[in-house]
Design a protein around this nucleic acid. Structure first.
Length: 585
DNA sequence: GCCGTTTTCGGCCCGACTGTTTTCAGTCG
């Protein structure tokens, strides 16, 4: 998959063009880069199937950029990019990663001090050479050193699962201030993106100065990056930044819309506003200089002729068109699955395999969460390291589960523990445990836990073969990615979807913060293909069952509705749904 | 360089904050 490489090149070209003060082209390259980066398909496939014409049909890609993509795919390089690199032999990607350093600064630093990379930059700053340049001073030099130090220890982005608990805590604190009338997180946290760069809070207050003081003195702050009357910015110990903005009450709706983004969503929205004779910015919606009060976000959308939409949808992936259609009376926006719609978790590990908690502890925790059922999906024997169960142990566990079900029933709980397992899919697509043992379970999950670097064709066939097994109901973490660590397997997702549809196999949305697998664009594709999904926590200790919130968020980002997710079904219907699989045997 | 139900030319999102400057350029979101 060359998507990421190409996106990187076009981002770099955008920077190079900015260095040369060229207008508008940089944005064009940036947009193309973004399109490629978020493309669900392999760009090489698109080119092979439809040639340059197919490339040009992608948003932000025209004749010139399509030609460059072709050049890269056929020759492995882009001539113009190579020329730019020769002209400015600088490490753009890493230098722009330094906060406060942009293309113009990079150009000056290269021309005056021959700075090409991070090491050069750090050295020059340490030697006090930067402060002597016109336009720079001691402060800018110090900021560069601090930013480099920050860069060195931070990965730049954080998992939603790491950030959201901190955000909820700060949110609660701000909410309890009497000077605060309204407060909400905005930005990618509000959209529940899988990784977060920094956090934005939006506040309405009758005493902004007090709020700023309070915010800048929160525990866990290691640096105040900016403190103004309406905006402040701080760096947290964990390594991420938090911003706060105070806005007037009559601007709150517009501001919340604006700062929630995404950037791409907003650009389209502002264009739409302009077309209709409005001007839209963070302060409100204006018509010939007059502000139309938008105290609520709904007001902004309504005035533009759109329905309000959930923040998780705002990625310019068709939601604006859908909201336009919906405002005209056509149900087009999805009715997203709610955060309380899940009735049970079907992927939890007990202490029968490597999990931390007993069946009873897990069951009681699930009951506390309001679940009606809980599926125990312990590993099977291939995963020795996780103490995977063999046929004999599975049979023993069955006795324990049935006994516990009886005990819970006598205690008056309307709750059922389901017997499942997470079998390992071997390289040839077979499972690591006897069919006979699987036939006795309520349901079976199968997943890949080894040999993840197979070529696309083989890997796809491997998963499809597992789906063809009449006992396999669910494929766990179908693409195998680990955020910030490991890419997804090489697979042909379209083929996987076709097979899932044909075999009545359910695809998992794994809620583990580093997995969130399926990813949003794949969820959307699965939904469109009519393939059912299940949102599971993959908990190895009971508290991790709360991870399901991240899985639901991911499902919502993929436009999933309640009807697309099988563990929103009551128990009898869920079991009937598993039964569908057996019919094809 | 891209784009088009006012279009194949002439537009392209916009404001706060910083650090350096005396009026603004660069960066960021």
């Amino acid at each position: 998959m060359k998507n990421e490489e190409l996106a990187k090149i076009f981002f770099a070209m955008s920077q190079y063009l900015q260095m040369q003060d060229i207008a508008f082209k940089p944005q064009a390259y940036e947009k193309a880069a973004f399109t490629i980066q978020t493309l669900p398909e392999d760009i090489e496939d698109i080119f092979q199937k439809g040639g340059e014409k197919a490339l040009e049909s992608l948003p932000g890609i025209g004749k010139s950029i399509a030609e460059k993509i072709k050049e890269y795919l056929t020759t492995g390089a882009i001539g113009e990019y190579e020329q730019l690199k020769k002209k400015f032999p600088v490490d753009i990607e890493n230098l722009t990663a330094v906060e406060g350093i942009g293309p113009k600064t990079i150009k000056i630093l290269y021309q005056k001090l021959k700075i090409k990379n991070l090491a050069d930059l750090e050295k020059a700053a340490q030697e006090g050479k930067i402060r002597r340049l016109s336009g720079f001073g001691i402060k800018s030099e110090q900021n560069i050193l601090q930013a480099i130090a920050f860069l060195k220890k931070s990965t730049g982005r954080f998992l939603l699962g790491e950030i959201l608990p901190v955000v909820k805590n700060v949110w609660q604190k701000l909410n309890s201030l009497k000077e605060v009338q309204q407060v909400s997180p905005a930005g990618s946290v509000r959209r529940r993106k899988e990784t977060i760069g920094d956090v934005d809070f939006l506040v309405v207050s009758d005493n902004p100065a007090k709020v700023m003081d309070y915010f800048c003195s929160l525990p866990g702050i290691i640096k105040i990056l900016a403190k103004g009357e309406t905006r402040s910015s701080v760096r947290m110990r964990q390594g991420f930044d938090m911003d706060i903005r105070v806005v007037p009450a009559q601007s709150y709706g517009a501001a919340l819309q604006y700062f929630t983004g995404s950037k791409e969503h907003n650009i389209v929205l502002r264009k739409l506003a302009m077309d209709k004779g409005f001007k839209l910015n963070e302060y409100g919606l204006f018509r010939s200089g007059k502000m139309i009060v938008c105290a609520k976000e709904e007001d902004v959308y309504k005035n533009l002729g759109l329905c309000w939409m959930e923040p998780e949808l705002r990625e310019n992936q068709g939601e604006i068109e859908a909201a336009l259609a919906q405002a005209k009376g056509k149900q087009s926006l999805p009715k997203l699955i709610g955060y309380n719609d899940i009735l049970g978790d079907l992927h939890v590990h007990s202490n029968w395999d490597g999990g931390a908690d007993s069946l009873q502890e897990l069951a009681l925790f699930a009951i506390e969460m309001g679940y009606q059922y809980l599926g125990i999906a312990d590993h099977t024997k291939f995963l020795r390291i996780e103490k995977g169960l063999d046929e004999k142990k599975l049979a023993q566990r069955s006795g324990a589960i049935q006994a516990l079900n009886r005990k819970l029933a006598t205690q008056g709980y309307h709750f059922r523990i389901l017997e499942g397992c997470e079998a390992n899919i071997m390289p040839d697509g077979s499972l690591d445990i006897a069919q006979q043992a699987l036939s006795k379970l309520d349901y079976v999950i199968a997943g890949i836990h080894s040999q993840m670097k197979m070529p696309a064709l083989q890997m796809t066939e491997r998963i499809i073969k597992a789906m063809q097994n009449p006992y396999v109901n669910i494929i766990s973490h179908p693409t195998g990615r680990l955020l910030q660590k490991r890419d997804e397997y090489e697979i042909d997702f379209e083929k996987i979807l076709q097979a899932a549809q044909k075999t009545n196999t359910i695809l998992e949305i794994n809620s583990f913060p580093a997995r969130l697998d399926l990813k949003d664009v794949f969820i959307k594709k699965a939904k469109e293909a009519g393939v059912k999904m299940v949102i599971n926590s993959d908990a190895h200790q009971k508290e991790q069952m709360h991870f399901v919130e991240y899985g639901i968020a991911q499902a919502r980002r993929g436009w999933a509705e309640k009807k697309d997710i099988i563990n929103t079904l009551p128990l009898n219907k869920l079991l009937a749904c598993f039964g569908e699989k057996q019919k094809i045997k």
